[in-house]
Amino acid sequence: MPIIEISSLSHPGVEIFSTLTEAQLRGRMECGRGVFIAESPNVIRRALDAGYEPLALLCEQKHITGDAADLIARLGNIPVYTGHRELLATLTGYVLTRGVLCAMRRPRLPEMEDICRNARRIVVIDGVVDTTNIGAIFRSAAALGIDAVLLTSGSCDPLNRRAVRVSMGSVFLVPWTWMEGSLADLGKLGFRTAAMALTDDSISIDHPALRDEPRLAIVMGTEGDGLPRETIAEADYVVRIPMCNGVDSLNVAAAAAVAFWQLRAPERER
C-alpha cells in the first residue's frame, strides 16, 4: 500500500481528517460515500474486526513500525498518510489518540425488525444529543448484555468521532439503527417497553415483573427534559431508579448502566 509522507495538512486526500466537519463526512452518504473517523489502534482494530471498510489512515511516523504496524498489514491497498508529530498535533485532539486515525466507510444500517428479531433486551435512545453520553451508553450496552440499540432521529449519531472514541469502539460491537415509528411498533415485535422516568405512578427498577419480561425495551431520554410525555404514556412500564440524599436523578449514561444491569435477561446471570 502507498505510504505518503506529508508536510502540510492541505495535502490532497488529508482533508478527510483535517478540514471536513462531521456533517460533511456524514453528508457523503447521499452519494453512498458516507465516512466516519475512528481514533486509536484499539478502536480501529474493533472496527476492522466488525467488518468496517477502511478508506485511509493517518498516523505519526513512529507508528508505521510501531502501534500501527499490524493495522497497516490488514488495511489493503489504501493510502497511509504520515508526518511529524508537530504537524499532526495541530489536528484537534490528535495527540490524545495515540497518533492513529482511520477514515472508514459508513455501513448500510440494518432494518429495525432485523436487529430486534432475536433480541431479549434492547435500548431505545430518545433525543440524547450529547456525544459523550451516547458513547458511554454504547459502552455499557456492549458490556452489560444489551442485544441492540435503537435511536430516534433527534439523537446524536453513534459514529460521531467523539462518540466512537468515548465508547472505546463499543459502537462496533452492538447492532444499532435509527428508529422510525413509536413504541407501539416494538409491541408488534413482541417487546414490552420500560420508560425510565420520574412520575407519580412509576415503579422501582427492582420490581420483579420487569426481570420476568421475556423481551424488554429500555427507553432512555435526555437529561434536561427527559422523555416526551407521549412516549411515557405509551410505555408499558414507567420505571424509576430510587435515589438517596435528595438527589433527583442520575446522568443518563449512568442511569443506563444501572438499568442495563438490573433489567438484564435472566440468562445473562453470571
Rank of each mutant, 00 (worst) to 15 (best):
A142Q: 08
P158Y: 11
L88E: 00
R108M: 14
R264P: 12
V123S: 14
D114G: 07
R165M: 05
H11V: 06
R215D: 01
P175R: 08
D201P: 07
A141S: 15
I115C: 14
I122W: 06
V252Y: 13
E60C: 10
L189E: 08
E111V: 02
E267R: 12
D67W: 12
N133T: 05
R121K: 01
E113T: 09
S40Y: 08
C59V: 12
R165T: 04
R74C: 03
S8G: 10
M112A: 15
E5H: 15
I64D: 00
P12F: 10
S167W: 06
L101C: 07
A259L: 15
M179T: 04
W176I: 04
T193G: 06
F191C: 13
F191S: 13
G226C: 05
A163H: 11
I4T: 01
Q262D: 07
A141V: 13
H84T: 14
I3W: 02
A143T: 13
A143H: 09
M196G: 00
I72Q: 01
D67C: 12
D147P: 05
L216Q: 02
V149C: 13
C156I: 00
S170Q: 11
F138R: 10
T222M: 14
G190Y: 05
P2N: 04
S40T: 15
G99A: 00
A141E: 12
V80P: 01
L91V: 08
V95K: 15
G169R: 11
S167L: 02
D130P: 06
T132W: 03
G154W: 03
T193S: 07
I134Q: 11
G181H: 12
M29N: 06
I4L: 09
E113F: 03
N251I: 08
A141I: 13
M168G: 13
A68H: 03
I241T: 01
I146T: 15
D130S: 08
A184K: 15
E234P: 03
G93R: 07
S204D: 15
R229G: 05
F260E: 08
T177Y: 01
R165Y: 05
D236H: 15
E53Q: 15
D200K: 12
G51I: 03
R229F: 00
T231H: 09
Y81A: 06
N118T: 10
E15R: 05
L58V: 00
A73E: 11
L55I: 00
A255Q: 07
G224T: 11
E30W: 11
A142S: 14
I146K: 13
G221D: 02
P2E: 03
L101E: 05
G83T: 05
L227Y: 10
D67P: 13
A38P: 09
E30D: 14
E230R: 11
P110L: 01
R229V: 04
N160C: 05
F260V: 11
M243P: 05
R28F: 10
S40P: 08
G99K: 07
D147V: 02
S249V: 10
P2F: 01
I122C: 01
A50Y: 06
R121Y: 01
L57R: 02
I72T: 04
P158M: 09
T90C: 07
P228Y: 11
G13Q: 03
A143D: 06
Y94R: 05
P175W: 09
V123C: 14
G93S: 07
D157C: 02
